[in-house]
Design a protein around this nucleic acid. Structure first.
Lengths: 347, 347
DNA sequence: TCGATCGGATAAACCGCTTTACTAAAGCGG
DNA sequence: CCGCTTTAGTAAAGCGGTTTATCCGATCGA
């Protein structure tokens, strides 16, 4: 009653297991007649080779793992992953690979890594000192890092986080803003500091602000959800030092913040300018449409997959140059309210 | 130089393979001293049990497969899958399962199914005559169907598609619309007719329209993307019989259509009322916000995963009652332009 | 003192497939 | 008719674990 295996087919067709295996994998090594007979019997019996046995024997599973540093139930609330998956998916289809999602198992990414039967890993946003990285080169499976610092053992795919952030900050400075707040990405795992991407973006914002001699920006950390963005709004200073512009490291937080701001009676962008980060498709659909930093997420996924596939073929690959980012100006930013009235005061 | 295996650990620790295996899986069967020594040596050598070998031997992989009837690169453009994954993810985390995405391999879902090393399948939107279904019960892996008709062998999780659609149609009828267009979901695979969900929704729309004696609705098929929605707008009749209301089977198409309509100079909802389906998070963020039929997608994922896990434990489970749907009225629907001017003409 | 019991460890079978020799038969030129 | 190469197919050795049945020595009750 249990699953039919290769031996069943072999004896039913009156051949050896080898012949059956050949019928599926090396048809040319078999005579026309036997080939047909074996395939016929196999089909009739509903035989399908056991994937795990196959993977064990061939030392390859035809699967790549996507290492996700957060809980599945929350990370998919962020369209970022969807976009990335589109890029990964494209390449995987070309190469007949399936994708295994590998979130922390029982709280531990390392544990999840060892359990995953994959030919390669793509890891998202791991900080360079994450224990999971050790585990990766310990078990000797090729990996490609996304949104991490490059590691000696694995190539990393990144975008020009700092450049994009700098452009965003420069944009609001050019509009005349001085008091700005920054919404920082949260650490992904129980890390102390920022994620690599967050650090780089922060540096970009700061570079522009410092250059312009703007006062120290107020910073809040907010998860990549609209709810977190809304909470971030509440955390903003309300009095005299209230920011007139907000630089968010994610579109999701920016959009949530925008909603909260409007609920609180502020007009966007007149009372508060908001810049996001990512340029998710929905950023173009909010009201007003979100000014944001565009990063090529799908392309990032494609590139990461391409590199990983190269590595899986045994080639060594270098970390590519960071992909470009660019500011997309839409309706959520304008000159600050005050300077509108005293038009032409600066520059 | 190759991966360290259980025999290496065993000989290094001066014990049998069995002892090493026990150290990881049945620690209580080992003496305190040996246990510690084995684990120590294992850690030192960087040993991790080979997942495929484990899966083969234990007859379980700790993975469930999500059967995706479309290309990965397109299906993730639709937030629907993200929502569903959130629900699935929740349950999978609870039970320490990882998720394998199984799209058609080389064009064939059946092929992909046999290659997938999983303990169970969740299939999306398969029509009841799909060959993939045969394959599913052929290899005897438990499965749960989502958005399909129930099959004798597998329970199906569904929502009240017809009820939601009927409410949507009734809503625009109540507003006074007569000429309506329907945006139909595309077939997922090379099927002849509609997907099961599409059929049920169509029936729901029709029920309300027929009851009200409305003229035959115009129908267009559009993929679940904004671009497809925009194209659908172009396909709408333009002259005397132009629809004043559109019932879309997906929010994505509805939003794309709304954009195209506005680009064409129409005012939403004054010139054209639009109702979506799904109530994706972004539906609340468009301008105007989208009136739509809410279906509990995350809950659907949770329920499907829960049932599958039950089945994997050997319990037999029945198809649950369809989950409820409800109309969410927002800003994209209003009375048709004409009847606004001749206010109070009907009812 | 002796058989019974028991904790601790092991040898060997097994999971289901691929693949590397290896053999028997057939084909071939001389 | 004979040695030599192909052709067609096979036996057996992995792949790397888990698990069952067994063994050994020490403790224990009588």
């Amino acid at each position: 009653m249990s699953r039919v295996n290769i031996a069943d087919v072999a004896s039913a067709a009156g051949v050896s297991k080898t012949a059956v295996s050949f019928a599926f994998n090396n048809p040319e090594k078999l005579g026309q007649a036997t080939l047909e007979r074996v395939l016929g019997v196999a089909h009739e019996l509903g035989y399908a080779p056991h994937p795990a046995a196959r993977a064990l024997s061939m030392r390859r599973s035809g699967t790549i793992g996507v290492l996700i540093p957060q809980r599945l139930s929350t990370v998919f609330a962020n369209p970022f992953l969807s976009e990335l998956m589109q890029g990964l998916g494209e390449l995987c289809e070309e190469h007949d690979l399936t994708i295994l999602l590998v979130p922390p198992l029982d709280g531990s990414l390392e544990g999840a890594i060892r359990q995953a039967s994959v030919d390669g890993f793509i890891s998202l946003g791991l900080s360079p000192d994450d224990r999971a990285l050790e585990m990766l080169d310990r078990i000797g499976i090729p990996a490609v890092l996304v949104d991490s610092d490059a590691s000696p053992n694995h190539p990393a795919v990144n975008v020009d986080d700092a450049g994009g952030a700098e452009a965003a900050a420069q944009h609001v400075l050019d509009l005349g803003h001085r008091e700005v707040a920054i919404i920082v990405l949260p650490p992904t795992r129980a890390q102390v500091g920022h994620t690599p991407a967050a650090s780089r973006r922060l540096a970009g914002y700061r570079a522009a602000l410092d250059r312009a001699g703007a006062p120290e920006p107020f910073t809040v950390t907010a998860g990549v959800t609209m709810a977190a963005g809304a909470r971030a709004f509440d955390a903003l200073p309300k009095g005299r030092r209230r920011p007139t512009a907000v630089l968010a490291m994610s579109d999701m937080a920016a959009i949530g913040l925008m909603a909260a701001a409007r609920t609180a009676g502020l007009k966007i962008p007149d009372d508060l300018s908001i810049v996001g980060y990512d340029d998710l498709p929905m950023a173009a659909w909010t009201n007003p449409a979100l000014t944001t930093v565009r990063q090529p997420i799908v392309e990032k996924g494609r590139l990461a997959a391409r590199l990983l596939i190269q590595r899986m073929k045994g080639r060594t690959v270098e970390s590519p140059a960071p992909l470009g980012t660019s500011l997309v100006v839409r309706g959520s930013t304008s000159r600050p309210f005050e300077s509108k009235e005293v038009s032409g005061r600066s520059s």
